[in-house]
């Protein structure tokens, strides 16, 4: 029982990171219809920048803020690149984001290095015991911060004027434009928010699983799977999908095979695509006829 509980706890911790990546996907997808294949690299960039700023002697809190700001600048650059592309067919935009992902990986190799890096826990090495399972302070921090992000994002879209304008723009671009909403600004903001969410995920994850220049590939793919599993375009779905993936992965690693852990996300993804193409929570845009 304690063992099961331990697996669940570690699953939830990682699950929240997947949820953040999936949420980042959803923010960009909902506003622009673009699937951003460099979302995982945003996560990597957040973690790596924080690590190297820390190495450079920048105080931890300040390093985090700098890392988050630089990744959001990267997000805005991606938006600029996408908006000057001459072709808007989704295959060429997908490839553009893939190219950007490769570029970011290359950039990380040049600015940082190819080694594995980690950070000490931000909140000390202590831990709790819950039903015999151990939950480290850092894991708790991941859970708490992720929840704060999810809730504040919800409040932002529901309660603030800017947030509502962004929702309006994603539902109907033309109507929003007529209402005097500046679509370009909204898109820039969406890309920046998405990058901020991703970079926070990357920073939170580093003390738990370490990071290197390649860590974004799998994180991105799993976050994308989480978004589709929950129902592409549905933010709550992305969070639920991320948690589900994290928990299933942890259970498979614990009880079945740690080697096949990484396959879990994709097996679930295929099952969902074949049998529930709208995702667990459904979405309006399922493209299956």
């Amino acid at each position: 029982m304690a063992e099961l509980f331990a697996f669940l706890l570690s699953g939830v911790t990682v699950g929240f990171i997947y949820a953040l990546v999936g949420l980042g996907f959803t923010v960009i997808y909902n506003s622009s219809g673009i699937i951003n294949f460099s979302q995982g690299e945003f996560v990597m960039a957040g973690g790596m920048s924080a690590v190297f700023l820390m190495y450079a002697g920048v105080p931890l809190g300040f390093a985090f803020i700098l890392a988050i700001i630089s990744v959001s600048v990267i997000g805005i650059i991606l938006y600029k690149l996408l908006s000057i592309s001459k072709d808007s067919s989704h295959i060429s935009l997908i490839i553009l984001t893939l190219g950007f992902a490769i570029f970011l990986r290359g950039l990380a190799q040049v600015i940082f290095d190819k080694q594995l890096h980690t950070m000490p826990s931000f909140v000390g090495d202590g831990s709790f015991e819950i039903f015999g399972a151990i939950l480290s302070y850092q894991s708790l921090l991941v859970i708490v911060v992720s929840l704060i992000i999810v809730i504040s994002l919800y409040l932002f879209f529901k309660r603030t004027k800017t947030g509502q304008a962004m929702v309006a723009a994603s539902v109907n671009v033309d109507a929003a434009r007529l209402m005097g909403i500046n679509i370009k600004k909204i898109l820039v903001l969406n890309f920046a928010i998405s990058a901020v969410i991703a970079s926070i995920g990357g920073i939170l994850l580093t003390p738990i699983t370490s990071t290197n220049y390649e860590v974004g590939i799998m994180l991105g793919l799993k976050g994308f799977s989480a978004a589709i599993i929950g129902g592409l375009g549905n933010p709550w779905g992305a969070v639920a999908g991320g948690l589900l993936l994290g928990i299933l992965e942890s259970l498979v690693a614990g009880y079945i095979s740690s080697e096949y852990k990484d396959a879990v996300a994709f097996v679930v993804l295929l099952a969902i695509l074949f049998f529930m193409p709208g995702g667990i929570f459904g979405n309006l845009k399922a493209q299956r006829v």
Binding site: K86, S89, L96, G99, F103, G106, Q109
Partner: peptide, 19 residues
């Protein structure tokens, strides 16, 4: 070490200018 970076840049450039 600039290999990957340049490779990425080339893909981006082609998708922007020669989609």
């Amino acid at each position: 070490e600039y290999e990957t970076l340049i490779f990425g840049l080339i893909i981006i450039a082609i998708m922007i200018f020669m989609p």
